[in-house]
Amino acid sequence: MTDELNLSANQLDALREIGNVGAGNSATALSQVINRRIDMNVPKVAMVPLEAVPDLVGGPDAVVVGIFLRVYGKAPSNILFLLPQKSAFYLVDILMGKPHGQTRKLDAMDESALMEIGNILSGAYLNAFFTFTKITMLPSIPALAMDMAGAILNVVLAQLGQMGDQALVIETEFLSEDDGINGQFFLVPDPGSLETIINAVGVE
C-alpha cells in the first residue's frame, strides 16, 4: 500500500488538479441551480491528523449542516459537504423562493432540497474525477444532519481511524457572490483507495 504520508509533490499536485476540475464542475452546477455566481478557492490537498480535521471547519462545536454521501466503486470514498448553519438557511431561502432570512430551522422539504444540492455537487465532482482517473465512482443517496461539526465529522473520521491516524483531505471552499453562502466540500478517500487513485492518475 502506498504510504499515505509519502505522497510526492507531483502526486499532490495531480490530486489538487482533479479536485480543482471537480469542484469547478460542482461550482458551475450550483451556480446554475441558484442563479448566482459561485467562486471557489484552489483546493487544499493535505494529510491531516484526524484530531485536527474539525479545526478545518471552525472547530468541533461549530453548528453546521452536513450532507454526507458514501462513494462506491473501485476507490470507495466519502463526500461531505458542510455549510455553516446560516449559509444553509440562506441556501434554503433561495431554493424555496423565500425571502432572505425566513428559514430558521429545517423542515423535511428543506432537508430534501439541501440533499439534492449534495447530489448535484457530488455528481458534477465525480464526473470530473472519472475523466481524469477512469475510475467510476457511484455516490449513495445523501444523508443530512445539522449538528456540531465534530460530531458530523465523526462518521468519516471513525472510518479512517481504523486504518491510521491521518486523513487525506481534498477540500474546496465555495462562496456565493453576495457572500451569503459559503460551504466546504470534502472528498476523503478510504485509506485503501488512495493507492488506486494515485495509480490511475499515473504520476510518480
Binding site: M148, A149, A151, L153, N154, A158, D165
Partner: peptide, 23 residues
C-alpha cells in the same frame, strides 16, 4: 480534551471535550 486524547486533573479544573458524535 481533543479527539483520541485524554487529560487528567484535579479540582477546581473542568475537563471538556467538544462535538462528540459516535465518539
Amino acid at each position: 480534551v481533543g479527539m483520541a486524547d485524554y487529560k487528567v486533573g484535579r479540582a477546581p479544573s473542568t475537563l471538556i471535550s467538544y462535538g462528540l458524535g459516535s465518539c
